[in-house]
């Protein structure tokens, strides 16, 4: 009976979240920001063309693709936790948590309701930008499959960042503390990924690896790998500029993407290109590891949060833990199979 009715938390959150002008202002601001970025990219290519550089339509498409994908990564990575970090802690602050816990509503339903309500708004942001992303296809240079990869990665990032915010919200009693905790962890993961790869490269004497799977920890690393792979793939309809590839300090793997050849964007490609490959430089598909890694991270966060959200008998194991362990194991096994064995990736 309980499962047949919509989760009351979702109903309440959607009622209150979409009330007033603020959600529409955020959406408008988000889309306006992305439009500005697109305009900026087109202006850059115009300036390059005027200075004598050979620019073709596919270059513009790739540039727009890179700019939009990275801008959305930035926005989703930092906006999602803001929506979830106060989910449970604000109930405590508003003194409504006891009212909720006195009802038959299970803590797990409170948690899933909060997550779905927050993510539904993030999904609205992501899908509202899809028409803008489709403009890229008009310029060419990017396959629809690449757009789909970006969309999937954005969803994985939103899920992971949202779950992390929710976990911190269950642990911290105050929303401010939960928000700070969430952003600190995200920043540590992003910066940490680059630091780990740098340390690894510096400490390897012979044949230092130019790429590392650790870069998948950073959403920007994972997203850049999609952009680079799209640029590298000649079969995606793009004409590769051989001269540009040769000029590239990264060995040509990102040669097709004019935008990522520019400073400071070129630093985003750090740790993503394997130069030791016999057949030439190859972009490591970090996004694949990110899909699996972020999903596992989200499950682990949800698992922990489902314990932290309980007011009593917090760490008592139950059937729910068995189920969560099963889901985690199944996703880990399927992910490993997909990454290493299954031909369709």
């Amino acid at each position: 009976m309980q499962m047949l009715q919509p989760n009351p938390i979702i109903v309440k959150e959607l009622r209150s979240r979409m009330r007033g002008g603020r959600p529409y202002l955020i959406l408008s601001g988000y889309l306006f920001g992305l439009c500005l970025i697109c305009y900026g990219v087109i202006r850059i290519f115009e300036a390059q063309a005027q200075s004598g550089t050979a620019i073709i339509s596919a270059h513009v498409g790739q540039g727009l693709f890179a700019a939009l994908a990275l801008a959305e990564t930035l926005l989703i990575t930092f906006l999602t936790p803001a929506l979830t970090a106060g989910a449970v802690s604000s109930e405590r602050e508003q003194l409504t948590y006891d009212l909720l816990l006195a009802t038959p509503l299970r803590p797990g339903r409170i948690l899933s309701g909060k997550l779905i309500a927050a993510l539904s708004y993030v999904l609205l942001l992501i899908f509202a930008a899809v028409p803008l992303g489709s403009v890229i296809l008009l310029f060419g240079g990017v396959a629809p499959k690449d757009l789909l990869k970006v969309l999937l990665l954005l969803l994985a990032i939103a899920l992971a960042a949202g779950m992390l915010g929710l976990l911190c919200s269950t642990i911290a009693k105050r929303t401010l503390r939960a928000t700070i905790m969430t952003y600190l962890i995200i920043m540590t993961l992003i910066v940490g990924a680059y630091l780990l790869v740098a340390v690894r490269t510096a400490t390897t004497t012979f044949g230092p690896p130019s790429s590392s799977r650790l870069m998948a920890i950073s959403p920007f690393g994972a997203m850049t790998s999609i952009v680079l792979q799209s640029a590298q793939a000649g079969g995606s309809g793009m004409v590769i500029d051989k001269a540009m590839m040769e000029r590239s300090s990264m060995g040509g793997a990102m040669g097709g993407n004019v935008l990522l050849n520019m400073q400071p964007f070129s630093s985003l490609t750090y740790g993503l290109i394997d130069n030791n490959n016999v057949g030439g430089s190859v972009v490591q598909p970090m996004y694949r590891y990110a899909y699996v890694g972020y999903t596992l991270f989200s499950i682990a966060c949800y698992w922990l949060a489902s314990h932290w959200v309980r007011p009593r008998r917090r760490w008592r194991l139950s059937l729910h833990d068995l189920l969560m362990a099963g889901v985690f194991g199944a996703v880990a096994a399927a992910g490993t199979y997909w990454l290493q064995v299954w031909p369709w990736r």
């Binding site: 009351p8 109903v11 309440k12 409504t96 009212l99 006195a102």
Partner: peptide, 27 residues
């Protein structure tokens, strides 16, 4: 039915929505 000493209310809900929410919580 429990009413705590310091209770909060969801400010951004209407009065009927507030009660409707708890009615949903009680299935």
């Amino acid at each position: 039915g429990y009413m705590p000493d310091f209770f909060g209310v969801y400010d951004d809900l209407r009065v009927w929505e507030y009660l409707d929410f708890f009615a949903r919580c009680y299935n």
